[in-house]
């Protein structure tokens, strides 16, 4: 299956929806280990206490890829990076709903050859359906020469 076919078949299709609890102990440990000193993230007594803005990167849905996605396509790929868009504070103790989709598939060619990029997107909303956080995960596969 080539990049254009992957794009046509899978990009934009929501393939998973999972609930995630923002556990107080996890949020606090995340902040401490990353060196957060802002009391909004490090002090549960702060009136605006919330999880650190990148906290939702720690979750994965029940499925990583759509059911029919040729998973072997990205075997041996590596994690190229993460983008987080913070729409609202992450409420500690809340249960958020995360939906998964493939946001993009594209190829780039540079000095070291050709690589295929897959952007896996999770959008987190609260129980009222309001957006809290969007996390894009970039998977990179080095194409065969």
């Amino acid at each position: 299956m080539d990049v254009e076919e992957l794009k046509t078949r899978f990009v934009g299709e929501e393939f998973d929806s999972t609930e995630f609890e923002v556990k107080p102990a996890d949020a606090l440990a995340f902040a401490r280990c990353c060196g957060e000193t802002d009391p909004r993230y490090s002090d549960p007594r702060h009136p605006e206490y919330q999880a650190p803005p990148t906290f939702m990167t720690r979750f994965h849905g029940r499925r990583t890829m759509p059911e029919e996605f040729p998973e072997e396509y990205f075997q041996g790929s590596f994690d190229g990076g993460k983008t987080v868009i913070a729409h609202a504070p992450i409420p500690v103790g809340a249960t958020l709903v995360g939906t998964s989709q493939i946001a993009d598939v594209y190829r780039k060619t540079g000095r070291s050859g050709s690589m295929t990029f897959l952007v896996h997107r999770m959008e987190y909303r609260n129980q009222e359906g309001e957006p809290i956080s969007t996390v894009d995960w970039k998977l990179i596969r080095k194409d065969e020469a």
Binding site: F30, A31, C33, C34, G35, E36, T37, D38, R40, Y41, P52, P53, T54, F55, T57, R58, F78, D79, G80, G81, K82, T83, V84, I85, A86
Partner: peptide, 29 residues
Amino acid sequence: PGIMSQGILAAAIHRFLPGSTIRKIDTIF
């Protein structure tokens, strides 16, 4: 872990600008 590196960079921003709010953070590993 990559997500810890990203969390460290977010913490660096908060240390420099206490009270600021990160709207978007993009990291490349």
